[in-house]
């Protein structure tokens, strides 16, 4: 196993009085793809959004336990600098209503970079990194919203790369894309994992099987509190799960 990038220790999260996820301890290895799977409402997205503290935006959220990034407690960090280290790609492509260039340059600019040459370099490198450069290099001033859905999502990945994070969170990044665009995103994920730690939430079992090295299976019962059932190498989860619920889920018996 590679070195540990993110570790959660007895982590729980409540929305007011409602406990959304409970007692999750997991070690996410560096430069690997870790998939979070499970039925709707099992808390996997909430868990993912804990890693860059996006849940802070929701009033009434409280947490227990710890989340460590490179051994450092993220709840003691400034959320702004945390989010520069942990990037995120959302379920629906959400480029800003700005040009392609300005979308990618947004992160470096808010971090204070003004040098045009450096920005040009970062924009090109990030778009290449997201496998979008060849399609848009002549139209960098075109609105990001004019791209197709799959291109928009790759633009959002490029935008995340521009901040130079070490972790990229992906919340069902292909859920709103057609099969071909989905495959391109999956190829891209395998490419990115050379340099980044990736955590991906997906509803698609085949996708988890194709792109991830490790898989965490979340489940919930009538209390609607999400719990971690099983976490192992993806191969093991898919061929030899230890828990009956995992087996039932991945073979499609429920969920």
């Amino acid at each position: 196993m590679n070195s540990i990038k993110i570790e959660t220790i007895h982590y729980s999260l409540n929305y007011g009085n409602f406990r959304a996820i409970e007692d999750i301890s997991i070690k996410i290895p560096e430069k690997q793809v870790t998939a979070l799977i499970g039925p709707s409402g099992c808390g996997k997205s909430t868990f993912l959004r804990s890693f860059n503290r996006m849940n802070d935006l929701i009033p009434g959220v409280t947490t227990e336990g710890e989340i460590l990034l490179d051994g450092e407690d993220i709840f003691k960090m400034d959320p702004v600098s945390l989010r520069q280290r942990v990037g995120m790609v959302f379920q629906k492509p959400n480029p800003f209503p700005k040009s392609i260039y300005d979308n990618v340059a947004y992160g470096p600019r808010v971090n204070g970079l003004k040098d045009h040459k450096k920005l040009d370099e970062i924009v090109e490198r990030s778009l290449r990194g997201a496998a979008l450069w060849d399609e848009v290099k002549d139209n960098l001033n075109k609105s990001g919203l004019a791209l197709s859905g799959g291109q928009q999502q790759r633009l959002c990945i490029a935008r995340a790369l521009a901040v130079e994070p070490s972790v990229i969170l992906m919340d069902e990044p292909a859920a709103s894309l057609d099969p071909i665009a989905t495959l391109r995103i999956e190829d891209l994920i395998r490419m990115l994992v050379e340099n980044y730690t990736i955590v991906i939430v997906t509803h698609n079992m085949q996708q988890a099987g194709r792109v991830s090295d490790y898989t965490a299976f979340f489940f919930t019962d009538e209390t609607r509190t999400g719990r971690l059932v099983e976490y192992d190498r993806t191969q093991v989860i898919f061929t030899n799960p230890k828990d009956k619920r995992t087996e039932d889920y991945i073979t499609g018996r429920f969920g």
Binding site: V80, R83, P97, Y106, N111
Partner: peptide, 27 residues
């Protein structure tokens, strides 16, 4: 303004104020 714009900006390490000025008001 769609929530997703705000989330995207914050997730890129922008502060709340930067998000308001550079994303929310233009939108």
């Amino acid at each position: 303004v769609p929530r997703s714009y705000k989330e995207a900006s914050l997730a890129l390490g922008a502060t709340h104020w930067q998000t308001i000025i550079h994303v929310m008001i233009p939108a």
